[in-house]
Simulated scan of single mutants.
Amino acid sequence: MEEDEVKGKFLELNELKTFLRITKEQGLYLDYLCFATLAYTGMRLGEMLALKWTELDLTKKTIRITKTYYNPNNKSTCYQLLTPKTKKSIRTIMIDDGLVALFKAHKSEQMELKMKQRLVYENQDFIFAENIGHPRVMKQVVLRLQRLMKHLDVDKHITPHSFRHTHTSLLIEAGAGVKEIQERLGHSDINTTMNIYAHMTKNIEEKTSHKFSELTKGLL
Rank of each mutant, 00 (worst) to 15 (best):
K7M: 12
F10V: 08
L33R: 11
E47L: 03
H199D: 11
E205F: 10
K114I: 14
K139A: 10
L145Q: 04
H199K: 06
D153W: 02
T37S: 13
K150I: 01
Q140I: 06
L148E: 00
T54C: 11
E214N: 10
K67N: 05
L58F: 13
M43Y: 07
L13C: 07
K116G: 09
A174P: 04
T92H: 00
S76D: 04
E206K: 14
R164Y: 00
C78Y: 15
M194A: 12
K116V: 15
K75C: 12
Q80G: 00
N131F: 09
V120D: 12
T166P: 04
T18M: 12
C78N: 15
E3F: 12
R144G: 01
G133H: 10
D155W: 02
S169E: 02
L145S: 00
K17Q: 07
H165L: 01
K104Y: 05
Q124T: 06
I196L: 04
Y70H: 09
Y79K: 02
S209M: 14
Y70Q: 06
T23L: 01
L82I: 01
H157P: 01
L99G: 06
D57Y: 13
K179S: 06
M94G: 03
K87N: 02
H187W: 00
L185F: 02
H157Q: 03
E2G: 11
E55S: 10
L113W: 09
R44L: 10
I196D: 03
G42F: 00
M1C: 09
T159K: 06
M194Y: 08
D125T: 10
E109H: 10
A129N: 11
K114V: 12
L49G: 01
F10N: 08
N14Q: 14
K211H: 11
K87A: 08
K139H: 08
E180M: 11
E205Y: 11
L170S: 10
K67V: 04
L102R: 09
L20N: 03
T159V: 04
Y70K: 02
T92L: 00
T62V: 07
L51D: 04
N131E: 12
M194W: 02
L171F: 07
E205G: 07
G27H: 01
K179Y: 06
P72C: 06
T92E: 08
I22S: 04
F10R: 08
A105F: 07
D31W: 02
K107G: 13
L219S: 03
N71L: 07
K217N: 11
E122L: 14
L38S: 04
R136D: 08
K104S: 06
K116L: 15
N195I: 03
T59Y: 14
L51C: 07
T92I: 07
V178G: 00
T54E: 15
L28D: 14
Q26R: 15
A105M: 12
I63N: 03
M48H: 01
R44M: 11
M111R: 13
T77G: 05
V6R: 01
L11Q: 08
H199S: 10
E173S: 13
F128I: 02
K9F: 07
R91D: 00
Y70L: 03
T41G: 05
L28G: 11
T168N: 05
V6M: 09
H167F: 14
K87F: 02
T166S: 08
E2A: 14
K114C: 14
D4H: 05
T68K: 03
F35P: 01
L171W: 08
T18N: 15
D4W: 03
Y70W: 07
T41R: 03
D31K: 05
C34F: 08
A105R: 11
E55D: 15
T18R: 15
K139F: 05
